[in-house]
Nucleic acid binder design. Structure first.
Lengths: 118, 118
DNA sequence: ACGATAAGTAGGAGATTCCCTACGCGTCAA
DNA sequence: TTGACGCGTAGGGAATCTCCTACTTATCGT
């Protein structure tokens, strides 16, 4: 096993775009807190027509953030957190910048270059 | 000093949406690696009309990810990483889910609930 | 086989995104 | 003061997003 989370630009776009919607973030939270759920049970939690929520699930699926398993006439959705590890990886080189601010180190090092992505 | 990074749903939408674009992520990387830059120097790096890039800078500004400082007829843009700390905070409750997968602990705990956001 | 149930697809309205060209505003140098 | 420069705003076009109301497909119970 070698690479696990190399995401191209378009993939990152899809990932962040999937997260850029409150309803979809709520769906993720629901799956995280309550475990896998059939589409209907998810939809019941939202004040929105079911087909609309079905679309949101599709966006999450295409971003790799949920998977579906068919069980009879239900489709059980499950959180897939792996792409979120990609987000954390993306975040990592920025970490020292907010650390810097919070610890009051100030803006002293602002111009100090670093290399990370080619 | 009390709360520093409480972001409402709309604010999170704006934040993730700002990150959901390759050009804008590139701008952030540039500011991280090369330090603060005038708008023109940033625009020169992209194969895009300057007003288009100006719009991207506006989106980043409204998400709080960059700040601008006027210096003569230039506007120096600077990375503001604090909102990215919000992203990491948002990410945190999901962390155990991908850890779980990676360490091969398997799907055993998938249905185990946890509480985090109200 | 039939009707009811679970959930996705089709198509469409209205808003937003992402790019462009044209133009306006402030600042500096001569 | 005039002209050039740095940069933003206006406005517009094509594509995409987010919601809706039908409608289709697949499965289950009787």
């Amino acid at each position: 096993m070698a690479t696990a989370s190399v995401r191209d630009t378009a993939g990152q776009d899809r990932l962040f775009a999937a997260l850029a919607n409150g309803t979809r973030r709520e769906v993720l939270r629901l799956l995280r807190e309550r475990g896998p759920q059939p589409a209907g049970a998810i939809a019941d939690r939202f004040d929105m027509a079911r087909p609309s929520l079905s679309e949101h699930l599709k966006v999450l699926r295409e971003a790799g953030l949920v998977s579906e398993e068919r069980a009879g006439r239900q489709r059980i959705y499950r959180l897939e957190a792996a792409p979120l590890a990609d987000v954390q990886d993306w975040l990592h080189p920025y970490e020292r910048f907010w650390r810097q601010r919070l610890t009051g180190l100030g803006d002293v090092l602002d111009a100090m270059p670093d290399d990370d992505t080619p």
